[in-house]
Amino acid sequence: MSGHKPQKSSLWADSWKQLRKNHAAIAGLIILTILISASILAPWLTPYSFEEQNLALGASCPSLEHWLGTDTLGRDLFTRLLYGGRTSFLVGFCATVVSLLIGVPYGAISGYSGGKVDSVMMRIVDILYTMPFTILVIILMVVFGRNILLMFGAIGAIQWLVMARIIRGQVLALRKQAFVESAIAIGASRRRIIFKHIIPNVMGIIIVYTTLTIPHVMLMETFLSFLGLGIQPPMSSWGLLIKDGASVMETYPWLLISPALVFSVTLFSMNFLGDGLRDALDPRFSKGRS
């Protein structure tokens, strides 16, 4: 085992070198870092609090005092965006991690095993996929109360299903390939084949799908907040700000534009970074390039 170690770390170093060459990915990384730090450091970046109202001011256009304007209750939008970022990043990352942790191994095992095991595992996915999400969430809330961890769980629990199906489809194809068959031939354990050979080879699609899942999850949070599971008012999130902005897009367009813009910039950055990572990590891909 120890013999493999240096080899592994050099793989990581190689990947990092590869990634650094990709300007778009690095730009994405930098922007993401800035946005995340800004959310974390929110209290130090703004003189306002996210709940402080100024009813007489109401919804006002961007100005020197309020860079991005204020919402209908006269709250500073810039501040609410910063704090909202906390929620959205937290939900986006945590729920996606949950879905990855379940979906990837599940799909890989199902696809690799094939036959009866695959059938049973996929039918379980089908069953879960048809469960009425609204009811499920409402019951979870009754049992566990309002709880941010529960929200990650609830979203992750629904998101992993499609992830598992995609991974399984890929693995189904991979397991007949030469490198897997040779691994079997030299007597590698099933576990080792799945985690050392198969999963690295589906890394590309995992990364692509992850970058698709994160925005989806960030928006899903608004529905959970509607059901009362998400964050509670007056706290906000990007999804909620966009939703609120959308409902007043004609009267107060700035309430939609800046949250939507920040959300988009985040997603673009994530995608560039994701593509860069995919290129850097994918063993076949980097081999093909070099």
């Binding site: 809330m141 907040s225 509607f226 059901l227 009362g228």
Partner: peptide, 10 residues
Amino acid sequence: IELENVEWKV
């Protein structure tokens, strides 16, 4: 006072 928004039937 904490605000607690829930779904209609709840």
